[in-house]
Each structure stands twice: as structure tokens, then as C-alpha cells.
Write a protein that binds this DNA or RNA. Structure first.
Lengths: 348, 348
DNA sequence: TGTTAGCACTCACTTTCGCTGAGTGCTAAC
DNA sequence: GTTAGCACTCAGCGAAAGTGAGTGCTAACA
């Protein structure tokens, strides 16, 4: 059954008031504060209808109404208007993200700070990763006698390195030879290409350095698989600004969930974003994580050069300023892509 | 004025009871639960003395006593006995730290998790850094046309890298030449050695690549100075397990302080550890940070190979299980040194 | 038939008030 | 010097009463 225009207006008014005040909203307030040209009694009738239809809940008989999950869902799908930032706000926002970044880590943690500052909710930022990366460069350098540094660059531009102990007698020339050999053998391949038989051939070709080769290949494999989908969490304490978390037990439950990167990773894993929309809103139980059933999750995909990608988002109470959060994520998302592009591919 | 043996025993009993229960402790309880062979009335007299001398406070007339900051200070300096872990506990603890670590970041964040799990307080771990590092290796590699990767290794074994855009026409050979030249010029130097005049000479020697040289040197300088003394914070939500933080405003104040890395860095900066002791305990206002005056800070120095060093520690309520915290930090601290040594210098 | 005013009713929240019990300080006796 | 006894204090708890925002229903009005 379709909602009448009037019901939609009333529902919207209720949800927006509730988002602002966190108090159950009553018919009188709607009549007074919104110019609907209706009396409280009429609104009461409509509210009774909306409740019956499942869009509103009542905490108890003599309180006002609050939106149900279904009410929020309808709101974000059909009623919500985008929050529009002023040009100035956008400029400030972008400016606050433009710093001299030396490391990927600092970009990511800076972005999570920015998100949490703008939205006033705890922010989540995933490190960029990729489905199936290929090796672009492999270089071994002798740092000092007995220690070699291995540098791996993937097709997507991710660089990683590792120090490794080697026999004392191995010198610069040997390392260069091994380095060139391995580089030639492995460049352009992805993890799946490195079959056992292929590796056998490689080890045999330079059998006297088998152990070293093995360690290096292991490291390369680890880089290509890059299983650690690390996430950064910023502004976790922001959650305490919301009256629904004044209960210390609830706050503790929330914060200790948030504290664990594993939990967040799992949560992101179970909440994939539809191909054809760039932002996904999960309201309450929709997020599929039982402990977090009374919070909403808003996440966006970002991507860099069409290869690397990850998610950014926020977690907050179901009563959340969805409009503002969505707009913030859009602005930040775009800039993040630009910053990472510049950083990883040197697009200046 | 010296404290009599009996006063010391009573003070210790009060502090330890209070640490356990978080409730003001009364004379009757001390008489009953501790085998001092004294009646409650006698203990009351002694408690009155201790209060007068400044070791105890009274929240209000008809409650028991709680330790004052001075009381805690005396306790940790003179009364506290070390908490002794069983061999099994130590083994478990060490085992939980021994994982396959690929990156410095994961070691650090793992350690901060371990500390917070063992102590049940929020943990702080500083990234290792060093006063004055020298360049050990510099290597530039052309990743693809137009992009060069710079790898810097310092004397202490810290490796950093950066991608940089270069002119299209620069090929492998040119990069190798530049790389060897710069490496020859800069290896063994520290940031202070790179005076303006010395840099001038370098730039002039290969004037046609002046801009590139400049960028590379800038990056090297940044690595050597390594101003970012990053910290990791783990288990922040643990603070909510302590009854003194059931007040939501206090919890918020604490958590939002903790949320900011800047705050923590500043706090660590103002709390140096005395040369001749490896662990420092700052009780309440002693930590010098006004917002954190009702919390205590316990920090330890760790060092790797005598060069790299940093701090680990915890923040908790003044009513803290100091004995256990100190012992935990000692065990963890030692293992951390071993793990980092293995990782950075390949001491297997 | 849709809208509105009026009224009785509900119920969370706040305030008040007295009670309880743990704890203290003082005094007098051992 | 130690202890028993007693009067006094005061936070915390729970019951009771009061307050007010909000609802549902009914009847009258346009």
C-alpha cells in the first residue's frame, strides 16, 4: 500500500525531529514546528496509521513515536534529501585532507580522523588492497654483510620490503645475480601462477641458494596475497556524544567491539556494496552482526586507478543524520581517490 | 617523620583493599580480613593519624578511607611487592607475542593488544625511533617509465621507500648513475651533516637532474629526522571496566583524550623516564597533563640493539593494580626487545 | 467524510522523605 | 597502649506522591 503525500510528510517530519532531538516525538510538536496546516489530533490519527503500517514504534503508551527500522529504511530510500555543503565547507574539508603525506598509513589515519570530525561518528577506513596483484619489480640489496633487503613492488604500486639474514660469504655480486634471476622469473606473475612445479624449477636452477630463494619467494607470495586487510578506526569516542550510548554497558559493548580490528574487518566483509550504487546504508539488524544490531553502518567504496580499492564509512546509532553522513562520505571519498592516485602513481 | 611498622602494614592493607574493591575501606574490614591482631578501634586511631599525615583521604565523614596521591606514591615506592607471574603465565604471555610478523606496524599493534589484554587497561606503544640516525643505504629503482622508487635504509635498520615521478626520458642507466652518485655522497651522514653548502655541491655536480636530486635528498632528510613519533593505543575501552569511569562524562573526557595521538605523544614527551630506572610511575597530577590528573601513567623504556628505542605503557585510574602492571610491562618489554632485534637486525 | 476540540487516561520521570547500615570519633575502662 | 561501647553522620535505597507530555476516543463541525 502506498503512502499518501501527507503521510510521507508527517513521517519525514517525525524522523528528522527524532534525528535531531533523540526524544520520542509527539503529535503536538509536529503540529507546532512544521507548517503542515494540520492539527495535532489529525496528525495523531495519521501517526496511528503509520504505526499500524510498521513505519513507527512506540516506546510506551504515553510517549511520542520513534521511527522503526522500516521507517528509517523508507526515509533513506525515498524521503531523505541530500545535505548540501556550502562551497566553503567543501573547500575547508578538502583543504584539511591535503597534507604532505609520506606514507600510506598517514593518509589512511588522517582520512579516518577527518571523517570522524566531520560526521561526529566513529570512522572506519580500510587500507587499499586488490583482488589479484601481479609482481612488477623485485630487487634484492645487500645492506651489510649477512643482511639482505628485499623490495617488492606490485602492479598496483604497493611497495613492501623485508630484511633477511643470509650467509656471511654471500657478496654483492651474488645477490645481484640472484636478484636479476628471480626478477626475470617472477615479474608479471600473480600468486596463482606460482605453482609448486614452477617453483621447483626455480629452486633447482640455483640449487646452492635454495634456502634463500625459498624465503624470498615466500615473501613475494605474501605480498601478492596481502591477506591483511587492515582497517583504521578514528574518533571511536564520538559515539559517547549520542544519548543512546549514555548507558555505560552499551557504550562498553560498542567500544570493545570497535576496538578489535578483526570485528570490523568481519563486519565489512559481510556488508558488500552493490555494484551499481556507491554508498550502502545498513540500518540496525541489516548489518548482519548481532552485537551491532542497534547501530547503523554507512559505507562507501573508493578506488584508485581502477585497480586498488577499499571501503570507508562510519558507524553510529540508528538515529543518525544519514543525509549529512552520506554527503560527507561522498566528498571525502572523491578526494581520497585523488590523493592516493597522486601518491601511488605519481599523477601530479 | 617515619611511619611505624604498624602504620605501614595498615596503610598497605587499606591501599590493597581499595585497589581490589574500589570502595572506601573501613576500620572494621581491615581488622577482620587482615590478621593484624588489632581491634577496629585501634586501627581507627592509626587511620586518623595516617589521614592527618596526608596518606589517606576521606570522601565524606561517614565513609571509609581512600588513599591520597601521597599514599599511592609511598605505596609504590616502599610498600608494594612485585606481582609474580607463574612460569606458565609468563610462557603464555610470551607465546601470545610470538607470531610471524611481516611489518613493524603489526608488531607494535600486537604488543599494544597484548599489554591491554594482560593488564586490562588501555595500552600505549611508541614506534621505535632514534636520536640521530645515519644513512646506510640509498637505492633508486626505475619501476616503470616515469616512476622511480627510492629506498632508504638507516644505520639503525629502518627501511622506508617512496615513489616519485620523473621525466619520461630518464632511463635505467641514468637512474643507476644518479643512485650510485647520491649513495656515494650521502652514505654515513646524518641530518646535521647535510649542510646547505654541501648540498649545493651535490646539486651542481649533476645539474641537469637538479630537481630530482633535490626531491630525493629531501626524502632522505625526512627519513633521517623521522619526526613522526607515532604511537599505538590498544584496548582503550578497557577503561570502562573501572568503576571510576562509570560516569559517562568522565569516560568521554578520557576516551577523547586517548583518541588523539597528539595528546598521547605530548603526554609521553612530558614524562621522561629517569636514566637509572627502567619503569616510571606517575600518579595522578604527577603526569603533568591537566585533563588526565585523575589517572596514573606507568611507562617503560624499551631499546633494540642499544640504538632504537621507545616507550610502552598503560594508562589507568589512580586506583590501579600497580604491582601487576609493573610486572607485566617488564615481561612484555623484554620480549619486545627480542622480537624487534630479530626483525630489524636479523638476529636469529 | 475528513478535520478538529475536548477530555479522561497512561506512564516515565522527578522529587521528597524516611530508613538503613557502614563507618567515624570520643570516652572510659581494662 | 588497647579495646569496648555509644552517639553521631551521611550516602544510598526504595516507596510514595506529584508532574507533564503524550495518547486514544468521542462528538461536533465544515
Amino acid at each position: 500500500m502506498e503512502l499518501s503525500e501527507r503521510k510521507r510528510l508527517i513521517l519525514q517530519a517525525i524522523i528528522e525531529d527524532y534525528i535531531q532531538t533523540a526524544e520520542p516525538v509527539g503529535s503536538r510538536n509536529i503540529a507546532k514546528n512544521h507548517d503542515l496546516g494540520l492539527s495535532a489530533a489529525t496528525i495523531r490519527n495519521e501517526m496511528a496509521d503509520l504505526e499500524e503500517m510498521g513505519y513507527l514504534d512506540k516506546p510506551h503508551t504515553s510517549a511520542g513515536r520513534i521511527p522503526s527500522e522500516m521507517g528509517y529504511r523508507f526515509y533513506v530510500d525515498s524521503l531523505m534529501q541530500r545535505y548540501s555543503f556550502t562551497m566553503e565547507e567543501i573547500a575547508n574539508l578538502q583543504h584539511s585532507m591535503d597534507r604532505k603525506f609520506m606514507r600510506l598509513e598517514s593518509v589512511i589515519s588522517e582520512i579516518s580522523d577527518t571523517i570522524s570530525k566531520v560526521t561526529n561518528y566513529p570512522a572506519i577506513v580500510e587500507m587499499p588492497s586488490c583482488q589479484k596483484s601481479r609482481l612488477r619489480n623485485l630487487k634484492m640489496m645487500l645492506i651489510e654483510r649477512g643482511i639482505v633487503l628485499i623490495v617488492v613492488v606490485t602492479e598496483e604500486g604497493v611497495v613492501r620490503n623485508k630484511r633477511m639474514g643470509v650467509a656471511e660469504e654471500i657478496d654483492y655480486e651474488i645477490i645481484d645475480t640472484i636478484s636479476d634471476f628471480l626478477s626475470g622469473q617472477l615479474t608479471g606473475l600473480c600468486a596463482d601462477d606460482l605453482t609448486a612445479s614452477r617453483l621447483m624449477l626455480i629452486y633447482e636452477a640455483m640449487a646452492q641458494y635454495g634456502a634463500l630463494l625459498k624465503s624470498v619467494v615466500e615473501f613475494v607470495l605474501d605480498c601478492l596475497e596481502d591477506s591483511q586487510n587492515r582497517v583504521y578506526i578514528g574518533g571511536a569516542s564520538n559515539i559517547l556524544n549520542n544519548p543512546e550510548f549514555e548507558n555505560i554497558d552499551r557504550a562498553r559493548k560498542f567500544l570493545s567491539f570497535i576496538d578489535s580490528h578483526e570485528n570490523i574487518t568481519k563486519m565489512l566483509g559481510t556488508n558488500e556494496i552493490d555494484e551499481n550504487e556507491h554508498i550502502s546504508i545498513k540500518i540496525g539488524s541489516e548489518n548482519g552482526v548481532e552485537e551491532m544490531n542497534d547501530t547503523s553502518l554507512v559505507i562507501a567504496n573508493y578506488s584508485v586507478g581502477g585497480k586498488l580499492h577499499g571501503k570507508i564509512g562510519i558507524i553510529g546509532p540508528k538515529r543518525m543524520n544519514y543525509a549529512r553522513v552520506v554527503s560527507s562520505l561522498e566528498v571525502i571519498n572523491q578526494r581520497l581517490g585523488e590523493i592516493l592516485g597522486k601518491m601511488l602513481y605519481g599523477e601530479d
